[in-house]
């Protein structure tokens, strides 16, 4: 395979470090409906990147373009210098991919599934054995190695899928909604594993519909309707959020809630314990607080630090909810 020779080398200009992932203005439409529009994305080794957004935001499309499963309509992208437009063997060797849905063979055992992927990636016997036993031990799947994949619990299945994606030691690990349908204990285990591989220098890109999960990433991109609304470190994104969040304690909640929701500037309302969390546009925040205080149903109102989910909901309603870095 000579793909790496013919592909344009993104490091050629300027000589800066090669990105593990480098997407430039990538677009894809399904029969005229844009799924991903002008996506720019760079990822370095040892970085854990989360692509976050609601269902249908274009996360899976972006991931499938990145892994060479789907050709972009426009734009270009490279993974470790290999073009994603014409997926070469070298590109596939560079990527480990764990799809969202069940993608292994249910009637094959853990061992057989691992061997199968080991063969496809052309691993010599010795290497295959070593890596297999290491992955089985860190995922604690060793005792179950002859169990069929269809008899594994959701969490164990995901760990097996992860192992299959890691067997050829890719430089980039791509996971499409890895924690979907996984119990919290396995979820935590999965995250611990990911941190371990990232520490070893692997680049990890994952997608998630859960905001609390985004906060675990080094860097997140918020995707909505195919566009990247904002990108950055989760804590920095929260710092750059321009709107305000309040926690309200009210009486007769259910009639009042609609009233609150209809106030000018209110971007999102959500329950939190017995209270209500309200995200309010910055210019209307003072007015909102005054309005709430002046009504008898308000027991208490206090400003609180926004969470990542507040930021996301704010961004959905107002694309300018995040301060430009330069202006900050």
């Amino acid at each position: 395979m000579n793909a790496s020779r013919t592909d344009p080398d993104p490091t050629a200009d300027g000589g800066q470090t090669a990105h593990v992932v480098d997407l430039r203005g990538v677009c894809h439409s399904f029969s005229g409906t844009p799924a991903v529009t002008d996506l720019d994305l760079q990822l370095e080794s040892g970085e854990l990147y989360g692509l976050v957004g609601p269902d249908g935001a274009g996360k899976s499309t972006a991931i499938r373009m990145l892994t060479g499963l789907l050709a972009p309509d426009r734009g270009e992208g490279w993974v470790c210098g290999h073009s994603i437009r014409r997926p070469s063997r070298a590109l596939r060797q560079a990527i480990g991919y764990m799809p969202q849905q069940y993608s292994l063979y249910g009637d094959l055992s853990i061992d057989e599934n691992l061997d199968f992927f080991g063969h496809l990636f052309g691993l010599p016997r010795q290497q295959r054995r070593e890596r297999k036993s290491r992955l089985l031990s860190i995922t604690r799947l060793e005792p179950f190695r002859s169990r069929r994949a269809c008899d594994l619990s959701g969490g164990m299945y995901k760990k097996l899928a992860l192992s299959c994606a890691l067997l050829h030691q890719p430089r980039l690990l791509v996971l499409d909604e890895p924690t979907n349908g996984v119990d919290p204990v396995s979820r935590r285990e999965l995250w611990d594993l990911l941190y371990e591989f990232v520490d070893e220098g692997m680049a990890v890109l994952l997608s998630s519909p859960y905001m609390d999960e985004a906060a675990r990433c080094h860097r997140v991109g918020l995707l909505d309707r195919g566009r990247l609304l904002a990108e950055g470190e989760p804590t920095r994104l929260i710092e750059r959020f321009v709107h305000r969040t309040f926690l309200l304690r009210i009486t007769g909640r259910h009639q009042v809630e609609d009233l609150i929701g209809a106030q000018p500037g209110v971007l999102a309302l959500s329950p939190e314990g017995g209270d209500i969390r309200a995200v309010v546009r910055q210019p209307e925040a003072a007015g909102f607080r005054q309005w709430a205080t002046s009504h008898a149903f308000t027991v208490r109102i206090e400003p609180v630090a926004p969470t990542f989910e507040d930021v996301f909901l704010g961004l959905l309603k107002d694309p300018a909810a995040i301060e430009e870095r330069g202006g900050a």
Binding site: R64, T67, G68, L69, R89, R92, Q93, I95, Y97, P99, Q100, Q101, Y102, S103, L104, Y105, G106, F117, L120, F121, G122, C164
Partner: peptide
């Protein structure tokens, strides 16, 4: 249908 083809296509096969 079961999604394993997608996984296959990301391998060098």
């Amino acid at each position: 249908e079961q999604g394993s083809m997608e996984q296959l296509f990301t391998t060098p096969v």
